[in-house]
Amino acid sequence: MALFQHKQSKPQTPAEMALDEVHGLFDDTFREELRNHGREYFDRVIAENATLFKQDLDATIEHVNTELKQHMARQLDQQLIEINQATADLRQHVTQQLDDQLAEYSKSLKEAQDLALQALDRSAKALEEQHKQLAASLQQSVASQDAMLVKAFDDNKTQMAEIEKSQAQALEWLERSEKALREQYEKLGDELQQSVTEQKNMLVGSFESNMAAVVEHYLLQALGDQFDMKAQLPSIIKELEANKQAIVDDMTV
């Protein structure tokens, strides 16, 4: 554009010339001053508005807090009133129920007491009757026992007399037996003495016989296996010769 900056252009109209002058008046510096001025103004307006807005906001928040507190207080009061009302209703209802139950229990208890009293009365009457019957039977039993004891005493008395009589007889028999035993004892002593003497003689005789057997057994044991056949042969033949005739006679029969 600089190349064509000094180029001859066609003549401008006044409007165009005014416009060019306006453009020359409102150059960049002016524009920048305007812009700065606008910026300061805008900042100031914004700061004032912010201050005002802050004041309004604080007032609004305070107002809202106050309103909220009042509203919450009213709500709580309302709830407390309702709760109190419900509690009163509930208390009244429970009281009514308890009264009813107590009345019913009292009625039942009274009925049970009446029944128990009736049963106790009946038991007392039955016991009284039993007591009377037992007393009567006991009296009767005592009377019969008394009669039995009297009878037993009489019987025992008789038996005692008989026992005393038997004891006297037994004592007499014992005396006789003692005398007889003494005589038997003396007789047995004599017989025993005689028997001892006989046994002694018999044992001595038996000992002699057994002694012979013992000696014989000893000889048999001592002489056993002492002779072999060849050693015995001469004596055997000698014995056979001595008994020859008897053997021959037996063989020829």
Binding site: L219, L220, L223, G224, Q226, F227, Q232, S235, I236, E239, L240, N243, A246, I247, D250, M251, V253
Partner: peptide, 11 residues
């Protein structure tokens, strides 16, 4: 012990 015990038909 020793000796002999002889048994014949009858004795």
């Amino acid at each position: 012990v020793a000796g002999v015990y002889v048994r014949t038909p009858n004795h």
